[in-house]
Amino acid sequence: MGARGRWVVAGLGLALLVAIVSPLASPDPDGLERVAADQGFAHREVPSWAEQLPFAEWFAGYALRGLADPAAAKIAAGITGTLAVFGLAWGAGAVLARARGARRP
C-alpha cells in the first residue's frame, strides 16, 4: 500500500473511530432544538418523508433497528453512515474525474 493508500485508510479509520465513540455524545437538544423548545414552536415538527423510505425499516434515526442496546444501535448506524458517505463522496468524485477524462481526448 502506497503513502496515499495509507492516509486514506488512516482517515477512514479515524472517522470510524469517531462513529464508535458517538454514544458518548451529549444527549442534550442542539441549538435549534433548544430555541424551538424555548420559543414554543418545537411542536410544529412533522415526521420526515424519509420515514416512508425503505431505509427507515433499518434505522430509527441514528439507531439500527433490532439492536436492544442503544449504544450498539447508534454505533452500528454511525459505522453504516460513515461508510455510505465515504463511498458516495469518493464515488461522486471518481465519476466526475472519469467524465473529465472521457471528454479530453
Binding site: 486514506v8 482517515g11 477512514l12 479515524l14 469517531v18 458517538s22 463522496a89 469518493w90 468524485g93 471518481a94
Partner: peptide, 13 residues
Amino acid sequence: VPLMGVSAAFIFA
C-alpha cells in the same frame, strides 16, 4: 478524489 471520501466520512461521523 479519495480525500473527498475521507473528508465527507469524517464530517458525517
